[in-house]
Write a protein that binds this DNA or RNA. Structure first.
Lengths: 223, 223
DNA sequence: CATTCACATGACTGCATGGTCATATAATGA
DNA sequence: TCATTATATGACCATGCAGTCATGTGAATG
């Protein structure tokens, strides 16, 4: 946790430090991020960083905390799951996740890097993946509702959805090199409406739906 | 490239050095691997490493080269694609890829780490993904043969398959913690026969098939 | 034996890093 | 005005790193 001193800072300065740090940790692996460089770019002395945070890891953790909070907030504001149709809910999640990644590319890259970071287990000692647990719940209850084909185990179904979901935000980011920032601004409002990646999500969901749906029922296609 | 001196070494010593290096680079991100530590574990002087390799990157590159060669060899020996049925060919690729990862877990982890490594572009300046290009070819020709649904773009279809393929080897590795080595030995022979992950591949292929197949034809289910 | 060549070695250099701390500066309040 | 408290600072430290090199060793060659 940051020190009280950090929170006493004038907002502008605090934001500057966070901005610079975020940019740095989002663009480089943990080991390649230098505290000295952050201090430099934020126009403060290196010693000051240690007046605000216990150490480098503490700063990193705080950024992750902010990212997590932002995403939670975003989802709680934009997402409400029906809980009846798995594929509808998945689509909602995909759209929200992708929109968040587009509107907060640095947060997204930060979190993405974290997943394979060298300090992952120092920060998240229990290495369970929360989003995976969540998806598992959805999939299993859908399985009980016979919305999922029975010739596929829950494990594989979860792997299937989770993998596609996790990588998709990054895929979108990679395929819109450079012009994130402006595009991010332009696409706010309706989530994943008419943008080019909105169409991609539709296609992806189509594939997931046919791939996962119970073939015996009428669930293979759009209702 | 390693120096001539390295190739003049007694085989045992050479192998020891490679083994230790491989273990190190497969288990840690590039920046966390220490040449001093490698030398230590391999029972040679640090200076010697630099008599065998130009620098740390050179050693790393050589390991990747060996991994690539091993995988190429493995595929050329175990894989022959019909080129007629996309899904059959995909299943063959999945099985071979997974089997390779199981029999050469360190090579697999090395390659996996490399994909997001901080020195990726120093080693592979053109950042094209060869396996993705290959898949793209398969998918596009299958598209031409109408084996793939027309309401999904080639890009998304490739993303769909490539993502699931790329992550699967790692998924299998993660879910067999600890006892790789013995299991690897036990499962050689027929590729992905009766092992627990053979079943998983079947399920995965089932999902991919239904997800990707052209719904208008008779291609949605096993032939 | 003497010379030459291939290889082995670890002390050493230079550098960057994370982190500390004595000191300086500014703000607060009596 | 003076004393106290909060904050800012950069020189400094210990550590670890990649990479170098003068010296040593030992085998082969004449």
């Amino acid at each position: 946790m940051p020190t009280p001193t950090f929170f006493n800072l004038p907002e502008a300065k605090r934001d500057r430090i966070l901005e610079v740090s975020l940019e740095e940790f989002a663009s480089n692996p943990y080991d390649r991020v230098s505290v000295a460089q952050i201090a430099d770019k934020a126009d403060i002395a290196k010693g000051s960083v240690y007046q605000y945070f216990e150490d480098k890891l503490d700063l990193y953790r705080h950024l992750l905390e902010l990212a997590s909070r932002a995403k939670t907030r975003y989802f709680s504001e934009h997402v409400s799951l029906g809980g009846e149709d798995l594929f509808e809910d998945l689509e909602t999640l995909f759209r929200a996740g992708t929109a968040f990644a587009r509107e907060n590319p640095r947060y997204h890259r930060l979190a993405y890097r974290f997943m394979n970071s060298s300090v992952r287990d120092q920060i998240l000692p229990d290495l369970r993946d929360m989003s995976e647990d969540f998806l598992r719940g959805m999939v299993e209850s859908a399985h009980a509702r016979r919305q999922i084909r029975s010739d596929v185990s829950a494990d594989m179904a979860v792997y299937f959805v989770n993998t596609l979901l996790t990588e998709f935000g990054t895929y979108v980011l990679k395929h819109s090199e450079g012009n994130w920032e402006e595009l991010a601004m332009e696409s706010t409002g309706s989530i994943g409406g008419a943008s080019w990646w909105g169409e991609m999500i539709e296609e992806l969901i189509r594939m997931i739906r046919s791939g996962l749906a119970d073939g015996s029922g009428r669930d293979g296609w759009e209702g």
